[in-house]
Amino acid sequence: MFRAFPTLLRIGFAEAVAYRAELVIWVLTATAPLISMFIWDRVAEEGPLGGWGQGEMARYFLLTLIVRHLTSAWVVWELNENIRTGGLSPMLLRPMHPLVFFVAQNLSAMPLRAVILAPLIVGVLWWRPELVWTPEPWTLLLGLVSAVFAWAIAFAAQVIFGSLAFFSQQSLGLFNVYFGLWSLGSGYLFPLELAPDWLRQLLLWLPFRATLATPVELLAGLVAWEDALGLVAAQVVWAVVFVGLAAMTWNLGVRRHEAVGA
């Protein structure tokens, strides 16, 4: 079934090109890290924050923007829409797993996303040239590996909430709750470094950090070697848990779908 994958990628890319205007909008909507960057830049002016200067702070949010975009998933909307409108039924009849199709669709839009994002990044770097830095090879490599895991966790999480549409009309509402928690716990709105102590303790046991903060902090060179391996190991664990949960909800949902015949 993976023989069809290159074709899927090609079609996915053509689709992304056809919907380029919408893709531009999508990229523009997820620019919250830029806002955070402006605000925290301002806060950092008053003095260094927990060992971070203005430069680290700005770089952190720039990387947040990049990582967020290159690890983003939208399968929850696709699943919700297709389950609700019955578009999933023909997909289930194809000799290819629908989730493989969605993975291909997701991955094939990435190049165009990167192209759309590039001017924004260049603009920021032009404005703040001191943000350019050379990461060490090991942090770069580990950071990229970590980004792949971050994407896998995010995608699996969306499959879980998307599959809930088999059971409930409120699945998107539930996903919004997840997203709200995620935005506070993943380092998306503020660096976890600066969160109150109780929150940081709590977040050690939650999956949010693994989907964003871990690769960002690695790429920014803010993590020491020995901590880095622990963070990536945590990602692997979360990836296994989430993919397992995703497979479970998906299978239960499809079984229900077949029974009810929606």
Binding site: Y19, E22, I25, L28, T29, I39
Partner: peptide
């Protein structure tokens, strides 16, 4: 004008999101 603009509602949302901070914090 566009084919698929559901996403535009998110654009408004993202724009509004900048408004959760006093505008004088921006430069």
């Amino acid at each position: 004008f566009f084919v698929k603009v559901d996403n535009l509602s998110w654009l408004i949302r993202a724009g509004l999101d900048a408004g959760r901070w006093p505008v004088s914090l921006y430069r």
